[in-house]
């Protein structure tokens, strides 16, 4: 005679969902979790761990993303359903605005220099650009322009840390690490930067613009430069030219060393 109670109890065995298993594994830190988010560039893969967001990437498939992640980070990443609260609360606005805000980021794999470059880059407002040399000077390493370029080329969290807003000093957009090189232009245009106007300045060798009512010069995409009306705008090819004309650098976009 079989015991009904015992056989019914045995039927109460069930299975843990794959995403719950992933959440359990990622909670230990041996693998990162990831989710996907739509963006202007396509589907973004966003990985995280207990320290914060560790990767933002574009990929054709989950498999591509997982392979690239483990190649770069030396650990695996697994799809999850639920994000930790602190990331869930800030991720979408960080992607939308291109500004990390209160989104925690994991820079633990980076050198102090790389992290400083990314933190400075995160300060550039949407729709504006700054040269690589500006980032170098701002973090106190004015000679490290090329190193800034390579740090940004390895930015683990593009879009959220807006490396697309850092350009060559001659005004050319320069390289971009996230997918198609044209993505840099797409992101900047989506943020409201008038690329036709911007490129006409760089083609004419104009690196700074000033206002003849304030005698202040700016990066051309600075909020203050763009408020200046056309008839009051003065164009400069170099810092020296602006200084000689009696202009001082803007304290907001800091196109040159600002006297304290």
């Amino acid at each position: 005679m079989t015991d009904r109670l015992i056989t019914d109890l045995e039927k109460l065995m069930t299975t843990a969902s794959e995403t719950a298993i992933h959440a359990a594994i990622t909670a230990t830190g041996i693998a990162d979790g990831y989710v996907t988010r739509p963006s202007a560039l396509g589907t973004l893969f966003v990985a995280y761990n207990s320290r914060g967001v560790s990767a933002v990437d574009l990929a054709d498939s989950a498999e591509d993303f997982e392979q690239r992640f483990s190649h770069i980070h030396g650990r695996s990443t697994l799809p999850v359903e639920r994000l930790p609260v602190q990331i869930d609360r800030h991720l979408d606005s960080a992607i939308e605005t291109g500004k990390p805000g209160r989104l925690p980021l994991d820079f633990s794999d980076l050198t102090e220099f790389q992290a400083a470059v990314l933190r400075k880059t995160a300060e550039i407002p949407g729709g504006q650009v700054r040269p690589y040399g500006w980032v170098a000077r701002e973090i106190g390493k004015p000679g490290a322009v090329r190193a800034v370029g390579s740090a940004l080329a390895r930015n683990p969290v593009p879009v959220v840390v807006p490396c697309h807003r850092v350009v060559r000093s001659d005004g050319h957009l320069g390289n971009y690490s996230l997918g198609d090189p044209d993505n840099k232009r797409i992101l900047l245009e989506a943020e409201g930067l008038d690329m036709t106007e911007y490129e006409s300045l760089s083609e004419r060798g104009i690196r700074f613009t000033g206002s003849d009512t304030t005698d202040i010069f700016c990066h051309p995409t600075c909020h203050h430069a763009r408020r200046t009306s056309v008839e009051h705008t003065v164009e400069f090819r170099s810092e020296q030219q602006a200084r000689r004309a009696g202009f001082r650098p803007c304290k907001v976009c800091r196109p040159a060393e600002v006297a304290a």
Partner: peptide, 15 residues
């Protein structure tokens, strides 16, 4: 081997 351990025991812990 931790992931394999989780996979081998998770159904029991969850159930």
């Amino acid at each position: 081997s931790f992931a394999a351990y989780v996979r081998a025991t998770a159904d029991g812990i969850y159930s």
